[in-house]
């Protein structure tokens, strides 16, 4: 469970997050939405323990910043926005990084590590990239490997920062379906910063809308994705169309 109480964060004079209180129960699938600079990435960094902040950030009832690094990585996996193209590793070595907190100090990775990496690569459709260097891959291929790292870690919570933005439609849906399956079958909590509101409405049960560092809406997609609320948050006129067969809401700026 993720629990935030009165989180405040400033960069110098500029306040980026203000009075954030939020509880995400184990097994939930929630999306952080909002305009650029609303504070989505900063909030994810605070939850992952990468950034200090005022207030309390708790994971499974414990302060995230005082948890041992290896224990924390066993609970939370983070998929970043982008992986540098200069990363000088092959696909298999790269995904093995997801097991860093479990690997032995000396010697080769154990059978459990190898199996977890093989499974993660197979499920993300990256098995063919094992021996290729990341520098020889496209942005989308690298991003799928970044998702594979999170899967290989076998965590209880996955945080994703715009992780599907570099993927084409097909792979975007594939990764989202995988995350959905992990969430449904293994009870993994998913929290993702998303810009694509149609994707958010189709795959997430809960949308948390941020505006200028504050939570202004926190509810089911149908309740958040209304023309009035979105126009206020994004500062432009928006038309929404409800799609049939649980395909979510189509959001069109005018």
């Amino acid at each position: 469970m993720i629990e935030l109480r009165n989180i405040e964060k400033s960069y110098g004079e500029k306040k980026v997050l203000s009075q954030i209180s939020l509880t995400i129960r184990q097994g939930e699938m929630a999306a952080l939405i909002g305009a650029n600079g609303a504070g989505k990435s900063t909030l994810l960094k605070i939850i992952s323990g990468a950034l200090p902040a005022q207030g309390k950030a708790l994971i499974q009832g414990r302060k995230i910043r005082s948890m041992a690094a290896a224990r924390r990585a066993g609970i939370i996996a983070v998929v970043p926005q982008e992986i540098p193209s200069t990363t000088p590793l092959r696909g298999y070595e790269f995904v093995m990084l997801g097991r860093t907190h479990r690997l032995p100090r000396f010697g080769a990775p154990g059978a459990a590590d190898r199996e977890a990496v093989e499974r993660a690569m197979a499920s993300t459709g990256t098995a063919a990239f094992k021996h290729r260097f990341l520098s020889d891959m496209s942005g989308g291929e690298r991003q799928r490997l970044a998702v594979a790292i999170a899967f290989a870690a076998e965590p209880r919570i996955i945080l994703l920062d715009e992780a599907t933005s570099h993927l084409d439609l097909n792979h975007r849906v594939e990764i989202m379906q995988l995350l959905r399956a992990m969430n449904r079958d293994q009870g993994v909590t998913i929290l993702m910063a998303v810009h694509d509101l149609m994707l958010a409405s189709r795959f997430f049960d809960r949308l948390i809308l941020l505006q200028e560092g504050k939570i202004i809406q926190d509810a089911a997609p149908q309740a958040v994705l209304t023309e009035d609320i979105l126009a206020g948050a994004y500062g432009c006129r928006i038309r929404t169309i409800q799609l049939p067969d649980e395909l979510g809401t189509c959001v069109v700026p005018i």
Binding site: S48, G49, A69, V78, I83, T87, L97, G98, T100, I149
Partner: peptide
């Protein structure tokens, strides 16, 4: 992968 990603990896 950089200091922040290394932190996230444990």
């Amino acid at each position: 992968l950089g200091h922040e990603n290394a932190h996230n990896l444990g």
